[in-house]
């Protein structure tokens, strides 16, 4: 019978689930405890999250397989793909057998799914470093909201902490009710319900300027909405100031 390990959804939880499932022979799967259960009959085990044990797993990955492998695994985790826990398990089993170069065996069936998922997340993070828009609120805080496909707030916050280091900002994933807060020194994550902001008097002024800049920088005779959408998929338009979604 298949052995199914359920974890609490946190990265630490996943690391503990991997530790528990690592040496099990035969069919094994790892899932978040709130994802729908598989139809197959399975022997289910709830994994307790223990940060000391999670640290040990992370340390082993970083030391034996290198930062690159760890980065891939963590980016893949943020994809929230339901099977990703099991994929990561298979990948790590293969990698610990093969060594640090395993992450480069892109055509290998144990590597491919993790690599693909981490690539998708990386791409969205890179795209959002450009597409995210901040607006200045009445209280002088720059507020930026978005609805990313993957859970990338954690991965995006360091970019803005370094780039907009002298302003106070909030990065809000409206769909996941999650936000990164930055106070000009540190950033941290916290839950945040969707909110309505009131913006500073200047905000409207700069928005209008940006909208007219956007309109006038295009060469009218070469209009190509197809090309525009290819780079900037419509699902991201909702929060763009220059274009109506």
């Amino acid at each position: 019978m298949m052995q199914l390990f359920l974890y609490d959804g946190s990265f630490e939880g996943l690391m503990c689930a991997i530790a528990s499932a690592y040496r099990i022979q035969g069919d094994v799967a790892i899932q978040k405890n709130d994802d729908p259960a598989p139809l197959l009959l399975a022997h289910v085990q709830d994994v307790q999250t223990d940060s000391a044990q999670a640290s040990k797993v992370i340390e082993a990955i970083v030391q034996k397989l290198g930062m690159e492998t760890f980065k891939r695994v963590s980016y893949a985790y943020f994809s929230e793909i339901p099977e990703i826990g099991t994929d990561i398990l298979h990948f790590l089993r293969y990698a610990f057998k093969t060594g640090p170069s395993a992450v480069e065996h892109l055509a290998h069936p144990a590597v491919k799914p993790v690599f693909k998922a981490s690539w998708r997340v990386t791409r969205e993070v890179h795209l959002m470093t450009g597409l995210l828009r901040f607006s200045e609120t009445k209280s002088g805080i720059y507020y930026g909201c978005f609805e990313p496909t993957y859970d990338i707030t954690t991965l995006l916050a360091p970019h803005f902490a370094s780039r907009l280091s002298d302003q106070t900002w909030v990065l809000h994933d409206v769909r996941r009710h999650l936000a990164a807060f930055y106070d000009q020194k540190n950033w941290w994550l916290a839950e945040l319900e969707p909110t309505i902001q009131s913006y500073s008097d200047e905000e409207e002024f700069y928005r209008t300027l940006w909208q007219s800049y956007f309109k006038h920088i295009a060469i009218e005779s070469r209009r190509s909405t197809e090309r525009q959408r290819q780079h900037m998929p419509k699902k991201y338009w909702k929060y763009l100031i220059e274009i109506k979604g």
């Binding site: 450009g130 309109k215 295009a218 060469i219 009218e220 190509s224 780079h231």
Partner: peptide
């Protein structure tokens, strides 16, 4: 480099 938007002619705005 980072692209921040794409104008109506499909060119990147950075």
């Amino acid at each position: 480099g980072i692209c921040h938007s794409w104008s109506d002619d499909g060119r990147c705005i950075s």
